[in-house]
Simulated assay, not measured.
Amino acid sequence: MRIGELSERTGTSRRLLRYYEEQGLIVSERRPNGYRDYDEHLVDRVMQIRGLLDAGLPTRIIRQILPCLDQPRTIHFPDATPEMIAMLERERDRMTERVRCLTRNRDAVAEYLDAVRVERTDAALS
């Protein structure tokens, strides 16, 4: 697929996709006409990258984590320092807390919607 389609399907600007490619996060092939050609699997990859960036991870760490997201899992961290490991543990813990918070908020919204629907149904029957 061309960059425009990848951009539309992921909600990511073309400029940002080119940046991801410069950072080694995604790879494209070049068509004879010079256009970039992206593999279908990159739709999920870009969404994973965006999620990791939203979680606060820098691209240099994301580049190292990405192999962990593939099947089969091939993990290679040639420069995993104690500081990097500690930072990743902090980020993991922060993400876990964020997931808990999002789950609580989702459940609260669901309860509100259920209550509103019941109230509207009761009002319609009256």
Rank of each mutant, 00 (worst) to 15 (best):
M1W: 00
R2P: 02
I3Y: 00
E5A: 05
E5T: 02
E5P: 06
E5Y: 01
L6M: 05
L6K: 05
S7T: 02
R9Y: 10
T10S: 07
T10K: 01
T12S: 11
S13F: 03
R15A: 09
R15I: 06
R15T: 15
L17T: 06
L17W: 05
E21N: 12
E21I: 02
E22G: 06
E22L: 08
E22S: 13
G24Q: 01
G24V: 05
L25V: 00
I26S: 00
S28V: 04
S28P: 03
E29I: 03
P32Q: 14
N33M: 11
G34I: 03
Y35N: 12
R36D: 05
D37L: 12
D37N: 10
D37T: 07
E40K: 00
H41M: 05
V43S: 09
D44C: 02
R45M: 04
R45N: 02
V46T: 01
V46I: 03
V46Q: 04
I49R: 04
I49P: 00
I49H: 05
G51C: 13
A55G: 13
G56H: 03
G56D: 00
G56M: 06
P58Q: 12
R63S: 03
R63Q: 07
Q64A: 15
Q64D: 09
Q64Y: 04
I65H: 01
L66P: 02
P67F: 06
P67Y: 01
P67D: 04
P67W: 07
C68F: 04
L69K: 00
L69A: 08
L69Q: 01
Q71V: 12
P72E: 11
R73W: 04
R73N: 10
T74E: 15
T74Q: 15
T74L: 11
I75A: 10
F77R: 05
P78S: 05
P78N: 06
P78L: 06
D79Q: 13
D79N: 10
D79K: 12
A80H: 09
T81S: 13
M84K: 09
A86T: 11
A86R: 13
M87N: 15
M87A: 14
L88M: 06
L88Y: 07
L88G: 03
E89Q: 14
R90H: 12
R92I: 07
R92G: 07
R92F: 08
R94W: 14
R94M: 08
T96P: 02
E97G: 09
E97A: 13
V99R: 06
C101T: 12
L102Q: 07
T103M: 14
T103S: 09
R104M: 12
R104H: 11
N105D: 14
N105K: 08
N105I: 10
N105L: 15
R106H: 10
D107L: 03
V109H: 11
A110H: 14
E111V: 01
E111S: 14
L113F: 08
A115S: 14
V116D: 07
R117L: 00
R117T: 00
V118M: 08
R120S: 07
T121K: 10
A124Y: 12
L125V: 03
S126L: 15
